[in-house]
Amino acid sequence: MTFKKKILLLFLLTILLLGHSLVRLAGDEWWPFSNYPMYSAVFKSDIIAYHEIWALDEEGMEEKLAVSKYFQPYNDRSLEEVFLYNKNPDRRQEIIEILHRWYEKQSSTKNWKKIRSLKLYKFEYNFSALKENQGSKESLLGVRNNPVRKTALHESKSD
């Protein structure tokens, strides 16, 4: 291999290593450099929460939306991440509006039912209740299906 090529490869390798060191120091990510923080946070909170998108239809009935059907390629998990990354309430409100418009745009061609608005709900349940009921699958899922709190965080405005 030529000396020139070795120098070029060394330079590129240095960028790889330096980039990863810098995002480590900054504590943030800069695609395609990452500090790979997945699952690194301590998970000992008493209250755990997750978010879901619900739709309010023309008759005033609320129903959970299957994200992977209506907002493909997102799924429940990845769409929740969008809200978790965007902590600014104004931006979150904006996102729910965008999702509503996206739903409307698709529903005209896909014959989905008309909705009045979209809502972002936060569900919470006690971790200790989960621990106490870990003995059987049914009781565990029972706790999961009965959250202690359900809070509407954002709602898209009706047209």
Partner: peptide, 16 residues
């Protein structure tokens, strides 16, 4: 290990 155990439990019941 408590944190990992909690995460396993949470992952099991997570509705997604």
């Amino acid at each position: 290990g408590i944190s990992l155990q909690n995460r396993m439990l949470f992952s099991y019941v997570w509705p997604f």
